[in-house]
């Protein structure tokens, strides 16, 4: 067992983990952050995407020990730290408005990847969006409304400085 100190969604945690424990399993099983899900075993689907020090990572490809001393943001920490009545992040809101989700299983990862995309490229073209989220698989939507959602969020974020996570 190895001791780690991690900030997740604004709260500090000190835990002992097995060196082989993946970040996603630490989040789900030790912290109860079950908003982040596991969709594959090969880092293809991106359902487990979270932010590590502000950058999108597939949390099935990061060991929990690698998060030691770092800050993790999950889907649960996006909207005002997760209070039930907190305002949604513009990307969350856009996914809702543009019907960018159906079953919703890929959605947490898709939203976290989209935010990362917009952090790097605040006004992406349709092609840039499609290529920017190609590491995240969705089986329900055919992606068109996800693309629309990212476009709408880009518009809203560029119109209100400082809205990014």
């Amino acid at each position: 067992m190895t001791s780690i100190n991690v900030r997740v969604d604004g709260a500090s945690y000190s835990d002992d983990v097995e060196p082989r424990t993946l970040l996603v399993h630490y989040l789900r099983e030790q912290l109860g952050k079950v908003g982040t899900v596991v969709g594959c075993d090969t880092s293809n689907c991106g359902a487990c995407t979270v932010h590590l020090d502000g950058q999108a990572v597939k949390s099935c490809t990061v060991l929990a020990v690698q998060a030691d001393g770092r800050e993790v943001t999950t889907i649960e920490g996006l909207a005002g730290g997760g209070a039930p009545d907190a305002a949604l992040h513009p990307v969350q809101k856009a996914f809702h408005e543009m019907h960018g989700l159906q079953c919703g299983f890929c959605t947490p990862g898709m939203i976290m990847a989209s935010i990362d995309l917009l952090n790097e490229n605040p006004s992406p073209s349709e092609t840039e969006i499609r290529e920017g989220i190609e590491g995240n698989l969705c089986r329900c939507t055919g992606y068109q409304n996800i693309v629309r959602a990212v476009q709408q969020a880009a518009g809203e974020l560029s119109g209100s400085a400082g809205g990014q996570a």
Binding site: V37, G82, Q92, G104
Partner: peptide
């Protein structure tokens, strides 16, 4: 807009594995 989305876009979902 869908009622279902509120829980799905915030990670407050009840998947069986949860």
């Amino acid at each position: 807009r869908r009622k279902e989305d509120a829980r799905l876009i915030t990670g407050r979902t009840t998947w069986t594995d949860n």
